[in-house]
């Protein structure tokens, strides 16, 4: 069995199962925790729990005007990276093909040039994020192994994906092997590290928003 066969076979099989198991584990572990009953009275400007939850999911995804001047670069980089990843994942023809073959769901792909541009922007922002975390004294103090590993595990699939799409530097087989393996490494780590914000970010905002919405607080 070649490394590519391993990547497309057992590694894909087990990394998918570990990711699914881990995500359900983490979500169930939090969802089934005892919630403190909210005994506060609804405020005069209460929007209700549901509207509060939905509103907070949106509002916390937008940059805060108060801090925008100071955090402009971080906001731009964050948006560019996440939008780029979204375009690569949902717009790249091979990724759609993977989903279609696994689930039967399919949708039109974006032109290769658009995905290539998004990939380049994502790679640059990820490198910027990594370098900044390594060099900024405060960020470095706040960072732990999880932070660095999560960035690297996102960066490597993007880098190998770009090389694979352009079929340059190394043979196609080698690039395909390392691209798939790096994605599988990310899938395995996803539920257990900070990459789990993929599923927790909106759930967390919704819970906060529901509480604040009932009380009528501005979010």
């Amino acid at each position: 069995m070649t490394l590519l066969d391993f990547a497309r076979g057992p590694a894909l099989y087990w990394s998918t199962l570990i990711m699914v198991c881990g995500l359900v584990w983490r979500l169930a572990g939090v969802a089934l925790l005892p919630f403190r009953p909210d005994r506060s009275a609804a405020g005069p400007q209460s929007r209700g729990r549901v509207r509060g939850a939905l509103g907070t999911i949106v509002s916390r995804s937008l940059p805060r005007r108060t801090f925008l001047a100071r955090t402009f670069a971080t906001v731009v980089v964050g948006y560019a990276m996440h939008l780029g990843l979204l375009i690569i994942l949902l717009g790249g023809a091979p990724h759609i093909l993977l989903v279609a073959q696994a689930t039967g769901l399919s949708w039109p792909s974006l032109p290769k040039g658009v995905v290539a541009l998004a990939s380049a922007v994502t790679l640059v922002t990820l490198v910027f994020v990594l370098v900044r975390r390594c060099t900024h004294p405060v960020l470095r103090l706040l960072s732990n192994f999880d932070d660095f590993l999560s960035i690297v595990l996102t960066l490597v699939p993007v880098a190998t994906g770009i090389l694979l799409a352009e079929e340059t530097v190394l043979p196609y087989r080698t690039l395909l092997t390392w691209h798939i393996l790096s994605v599988e490494a990310m899938m395995i780590w996803l539920p257990f590290g900070k990459l789990s914000h993929v599923v927790f970010v909106f759930a967390g905002r919704a819970v906060s928003g529901a509480k604040l919405g009932k009380r009528g607080a501005t979010t």
Binding site: Y13, W25, G29, P94, L98, A102
Partner: peptide
């Protein structure tokens, strides 16, 4: 199967993994 695909797990195995996850998460919450 295209090269970008692969031999991923069947749906019953994915369901099994989700059930195991639910069990561990439920046990942790309990």
């Amino acid at each position: 199967t295209s090269l970008s695909g692969g031999e991923g797990p069947p749906w019953d195995a994915v369901g099994g993994a989700a059930a195991v996850g639910l069990g561990i998460g439920g046990a942790a919450a309990f």
